[in-house]
């Protein structure tokens, strides 16, 4: 008796959460899982076409170009943000005056909107009349301004913006990991004559292994998934130079976004297949990294 009453109570409390998650979290994924086998453009009849969509993905050069762009973007973001955030964390972990203030400053970008900052960065990096170019010209560093969002530099610019937004977050995660390393390890190594660089190489890095593995994993997934800021800044342009995987996917579902984007048509069936392949790519890379990095985790 008491048991059924308890169960009824439990289910009634769980109900709002469970129903919302099922309907708005799980069902949409199931929807995509179904339509990836269909030819469906959002109107008219959905026609079952088996694996046709997947053979089309294989031959879709625009998609694979976006995959390559994603790797360049994610690779660049990681190569810059991970060492930088680790360095900042290592510096701020020791008794430095003003470290709390600096920590708060470096973490600040993570609390403000990516989309809003993308608009701001657009006005800063804008090739024509951009704020950065105004100053570069004013101080005679360049005569006509640098085409920051043009075909040559656009990728670098979106990477720099992404690094700006990410470093504080990873720094904080590294800091949390560093604080778990007992102080006396450093003290005894200092007695043995180890200098700061040696301590970092032979104590900090190995003992930070598990945390490092997790942070890099998180960074890889976030970088592969990210497209919001690119969408606002460049819309994937110029000429698809910054079009990443998940932005290409977005355009298949919302071709006439508020962004006046491309002349693409909406492709729900094909888009679902692209989503599946993209998720698979992210999954495979995460797994490969996970196994390759197990070495890092072996220290403890």
């Amino acid at each position: 008796m008491n048991k059924t009453k308890n169960a009824v109570f439990s289910y009634s409390f769980l109900f709002p959460s469970a129903i919302l998650t099922l309907v708005l979290g799980i069902y949409p994924i199931a929807w995509a899982f179904r339509y990836m086998f269909y030819n469906y453009k959002g109107y008219g009849e959905a026609r079952f076409t088996g694996l046709d969509n997947f053979s089309r993905v294989l031959h879709d050069s625009q998609f694979w170009d976006s995959v390559v762009n994603t790797f360049v973007y994610a690779g660049g973001k990681l190569l810059l943000s991970i060492p930088l955030s680790l360095l900042l964390a290592a510096i701020l972990n020791r008794g430095l005056r003003g470290r709390h203030l600096l920590r708060a400053v470096f973490f600040m970008p993570t609390v403000i909107s990516t989309a809003v900052m993308a608009v701001v960065f657009f006005t800063i990096f804008n090739s024509y009349n951009g704020i950065l170019n105004q100053f570069l010209i004013k101080f005679n560093l360049t005569s006509s301004g640098i085409d920051w969002l043009g075909p040559k530099h656009a990728m670098l610019t979106v990477i720099l913006v992404a690094v700006w937004g990410a470093v504080g977050n990873y720094m904080l995660l590294f800091l949390a990991g560093l604080q778990n390393i007992p102080e006396d390890v450093y003290e005894s190594s200092a007695l043995d004559g180890a200098n700061k660089v040696q301590q970092f190489r032979y104590i900090t890095l190995p003992m930070l292994g598990p945390v490092m593995q997790m942070v890099i994993m998180l960074a890889i997934i976030t970088a592969l998934k990210g497209y919001e800021s690119i969408m606002v800044m460049t819309e994937g342009g110029p000429a698809g130079k910054t079009e990443v995987m998940f932005l290409y996917l977005y355009k298949l579902f919302f071709p006439v976004g508020g962004n006046g984007a491309s002349a693409q048509v909406q492709e729900f069936g094909y888009g679902s297949a692209v989503a599946f392949v993209s998720a698979l790519i992210v999954g495979i890379i995460s797994l490969v990294y996970f196994y390759a990095s197990k070495r890092m985790n072996r220290t403890d």
Binding site: Y27, P28, I29, W31, A32, G42, I221, L224, K225, Y227, F246, L249, Y250, F253, F254, F268, G271, S272, A275, F276, S278, A279, V282
Partner: peptide
């Protein structure tokens, strides 16, 4: 699970 914008449609 990261499937991107596809969920926005349904």
């Amino acid at each position: 699970v990261a499937v991107g914008a596809v969920v926005l449609r349904p």
